[in-house]
Design a protein around this nucleic acid. Structure first.
Lengths: 338, 338
DNA sequence: ATGAAAGCGCTAACAT
DNA sequence: ATGTTAGCGCTTTCAT
């Protein structure tokens, strides 16, 4: 019957050294002989002993845990992001405490509060909500924003795509493919006032001398799943007789809604209408026709954000910095040449 | 300049009571007056003070954190599962430490080790791997298995679907729709020897007096993304001239592969071949035709698993228990009546 | 190269 | 109803 090995004390007793030495060895701090190290290490191995992280955290005031706030894990793009962040952080020696904000401001506040209360060393926030709650700023916890640029600015660094250029180039691409009546479908619920994806679209039209019409931006009320709402909205829009030969959908689900609407009206894709979508998740290759999509490289975004955050935890100042990850337009059937 | 409030001691000093009283109030243990409670609470509110969880965990030996091991968060089904588990656990007062095993035994071992080292109160494991590593059993940490029934049995309770019935009913459904040459596509890499989904398929054939042919089970080598592998395999199979009028795909991605293969050969769905898939994620409604799919109710699975695990943490014995969540066949275009 | 001891912030048993 | 105090398992300073 093996005795219960719960603390550094037991290892110390069993090996005949002091707890200080055990601690030094387990933390690789140096200042011990090769033999004692070997002895301690094999003893720990044998008894499957690891340091108690709560005690360690209490002492060194670091939990080696990072909080990840996501707007909605069910969105395949954020599932990807979660996966990449977890992988990246684990390589950097951190665990990931995940928090789903379900696209609700209230839940997001709770996420922040919970994570801070848990004592995470830093927070990665991709919540997508336009405002950051003031109550969180009281704690000087490192925060890196992913994919968002909130209206109120706390100086938190941000890692995101070059939204303006991306939507401009996607729109230009549609124009170059011959589209003249390009509809922008805003897949986000209307919480953002300024959206770079809209600016880029307008910009591209302008550069190609195509008049911008405000009603060519479709905005969803944001009460229902976006693909349903968009299907209804687009049907309505087409019903009113507005000509459309190109669509830039700022979210994958809204692209799907557009697909459904066009299909139900026997409008051919890409012959009559070309579509470019965002996010390039598995969904893009499932539809028929397959969807042209802006690859946003969530792996690179995750990597940069994790690097920044861990550096901040180690003392580096990244306030007000912004890292922009370029996107790539993946061309598929929905925008293929005639 | 507000002073730094870091511990219960500061609150005690500021309010003129002892730390014990503060602790009692913050933990709602009773034994204090309404007034002191009010005073302490508003003080904590004012200074944004919360108990240091590391210290608390060290003392009470509970972290209120649960580890979730997933085979692959990028799979939409497991992203759903993660979302539901996180939501459920947060309602039960636990945080979720997420760990992606990337479908690798080695990474799974690391997940277990990391989580245990972190001091999680319990582990939810949906890793999908057939064996559980022995090194983890050394610690008597509560574990609930999700969606898996490993070959070696540690007595861990399991929450999963009624796999046998599900695949039998799905197969029977195809038969009743007129299919006689039903191909089973095993979307899993070949690590499982016994798979209830196969047994159910065989069972249904048997009950309908349809001879079972071993080569009507398509097994992927498991080196590449399944939809690519399946596309190749199915093309090969059809090339060899075997008649097929129904397909049961045990994963969504393999259903997609089948879709591609059939489409490339101008085989009509559902007229020539009917397809039923698993998991019923967003993918099922993206394809064209939309996919009939077995809804596995990951929300219910998550709920049950979280309930069991938290009960085990509280001392309830659930060893060797199994909870089976029924599935529902969602009928869509891919298996619609002629 | 190693040890003794203080103290991180908390809970709970034992006081009063 | 409230206070005192020991101790959870660890790191680290200061000894030796």
């Amino acid at each position: 019957m093996a005795e219960n090995i719960t603390s550094i004390k037991d290892i110390a007793r069993l090996s005949g050294v002091s707890i200080a030495t055990v601690s030094r060895i387990l933390n690789k701090k140096g200042g011990y002989s090769k033999e004692t190290e070997q002895k301690i290490l094999s003893l720990c191995e044998q008894y499957n002993f690891t340091l108690n992280q709560s005690a360690q955290s209490l002492k060194i005031k670091k939990t080696n845990t990072i909080g990840l706030i996501l707007p909605n894990i069910q969105n395949p793009f954020y599932a990807l992001m979660a996966s990449y962040v977890e992988n990246e952080l684990s390589a950097l020696g951190y665990s990931t405490l995940i928090c789903d904000a379900f696209n609700q401001t209230e839940k997001e506040k709770v996420c922040f509060a919970t994570l801070i209360a848990k004592g995470v060393d830093g927070i990665l926030c991709a919540s997508g909500l336009p405002y950051i709650d003031d109550t969180i700023i009281t704690k000087e916890i490192p925060v890196v924003l992913i994919d968002r640029h909130p209206d109120n600015d706390f100086g938190f660094p941000v890692v995101m795509n070059n939204e303006l250029e991306s939507s401009e180039s996607a729109t230009s691409y549609l124009i170059e493919e011959g589209c003249r009546n390009i509809l922008l479908i805003n897949g986000f619920s209307n919480q953002y006032k300024k959206l770079a994806r809209i600016d880029g679209y307008v910009c591209a039209l302008y550069k190609h001398d195509i008049p911008f019409q405000e009603h060519y931006i479709l905005r969803r009320p944001g009460k229902q799943p976006s693909h349903i709402e968009i299907e209804v909205l687009l049907n309505q829009f087409l019903e009113e007789g507005h000509p459309v030969d190109g669509i830039l959908a700022t979210s994958e689900r809204s692209a799907l809604g557009a697909l459904q609407a066009l299909r139900s009206r026997n409008i051919r894709i890409p012959e009559d209408v070309k579509i470019v979508s965002y996010d390039n998740t598995i969904c893009s290759i499932l539809t028929s026709p397959t969807l042209s999509s802006l690859e946003r490289h969530p792996d690179l975004v995750a990597k940069e954000a994790c690097r920044m955050l861990t550096e901040m935890i180690d003392g580096t100042d990244h306030r007000n910095e912004a890292v922009y990850i370029p996107t790539d337009l993946i061309r598929r059937q929905s925008s293929a040449k005639k």
